[in-house]
C-alpha cells in the first residue's frame, strides 16, 4: 500500500538461550508502512535477517488479534508498548515517529526466565492455575444452566476479571514482579460466582501459596499492573483476593484445606 512510511531504529535484546548472556543489538528498518502492526514490522526485519544469514529475532506471538496472550515485548519501557488496553500485536507503527529509536526487551522477572531473545517461560502462570484456578466439577451431572440466577452486575464483574489473557504484562511492569493481578483475576472471578463459592477458601490459599513458591514478589499497590493490562483489569480484584485470603486464613472451619 502506498501509504505513509517511516524509518526506525531498534535496540533489541538478544540472548541465545536460558542462562546464557544476552545483549542489545541495533537494527534499522526503513520504509515501514505506518499501517503495519509492530509484529509485522518485526516479521519484515526477520525476513531480512534470515536472508542475510542471521538468526531471526525470536518472539512469542500467535493469534495476532489480542486474545491469546502469547505476545509479550517490553517496548520503550512499557509492556505491550505505549498505548493503553492493547497487546503488542494490536500496536501499529503509526504510533511511532520517523527516525525514532525503539527499545525492545523481554518480560523480565525471576519467575519468567528468558528462553531465547524475547521469548520467556511463563509456565509459572499455569502452575498457579493448577493450584486452584478452577471449580472442581466433573463433566456431566451438573444442574441446569439457569438453575441459579446470578445478578447481571455480578456476572459482569466476574467477566471483567475473567478477561485476563495470562500474558504476564502485569508481572513485567511491576517493580516487584508480583503476579497478584493475574492471580486475583481468577480468584475474584470464581469468588464472585456462586459456582466458585464452595472452594473459595482453599482456592485463595493454594493459589497464593503457589504464587509465592514461583518466586513472584509482593504487591505494593503501585497500580502499574492495571495501567499496562491489555484487558484493563482493575486492582480492585487484588483487594478482593486479599479479602478472600484473609478470610480463609483467619476464619474458622479451614478443614477443606490441608497441606
Amino acid at each position: 500500500m502506498a501509504g505513509k512510511t517511516i524509518n526506525i531504529k531498534l535496540k533489541i535484546w538478544r540472548q541465545a538461550g536460558e542462562n546464557k548472556p544476552g545483549k542489545f543489538e541495533s537494527y534499522e528498518v526503513n520504509d515501514v508502512s505506518v499501517d503495519m502492526s509492530f509484529l509485522e514490522m518485526l516479521d519484515v526485519l526477520n525476513e531480512n535477517e534470515l536472508k542475510k544469514g542471521s538468526d531471526p529475532i525470536h518472539f512469542d506471538h500467535d493469534c495476532r488479534e489480542g486474545i491469546c496472550g502469547m505476545c509479550s515485548l517490553y517496548i520503550n519501557g512499557k509492556p505491550h508498548g505505549p498505548k493503553h488496553g492493547i497487546t503488542t500485536c494490536q500496536l501499529h507503527m503509526r504510533t511511532f515517529s520517523d527516525g525514532e529509536t525503539i527499545v525492545v526487551e523481554p518480560w523480565r522477572a525471576s519467575a519468567f526466565p528468558v528462553l531465547k531473545d524475547l521469548v520467556v517461560d511463563r509456565t509459572s502462570f499455569d502452575r498457579i492455575m493448577q493450584a486452584g484456578g478452577y471449580v472442581t466439577v466433573s463433566t456431566g451431572g451438573v444442574p441446569d444452566a439457569n438453575e441459579i440466577a446470578i445478578p447481571k452486575t455480578v456476572a459482569d464483574e466476574a467477566m471483567d476479571a475473567a478477561q485476563c489473557i495470562g500474558c504476564g504484562a502485569c508481572v513485567a511492569a511491576c517493580k516487584n514482579a508480583s503476579a497478584m493481578l493475574f492471580t486475583s483475576a481468577k480468584v475474584s472471578q470464581l469468588a464472585l460466582l456462586p459456582q466458585g463459592g464452595a472452594e473459595r477458601k482453599r482456592r485463595a490459599l493454594a493459589m497464593v501459596e503457589q504464587h509465592d513458591a514461583e518466586g513472584f514478589g509482593a504487591c505494593t499497590n503501585t497500580g502499574a499492573c492495571e495501567a499496562v493490562c491489555p484487558k484493563e483489569i482493575s486492582i480492585t480484584h487484588i483487594a478482593r483476593l486479599n479479602r478472600e485470603f484473609t478470610r480463609a486464613s483467619f476464619s474458622g472451619n479451614e478443614t477443606d484445606y490441608q497441606n
Partner: peptide, 15 residues
C-alpha cells in the same frame, strides 16, 4: 529477588 538480576534498560513509568 523476584525482579531478577537483569534490569530493564528503559524503566516503566506507570502507576
Amino acid at each position: 529477588k523476584a525482579r531478577g538480576g537483569q534490569a530493564y534498560k528503559v524503566t516503566n513509568k506507570d502507576g
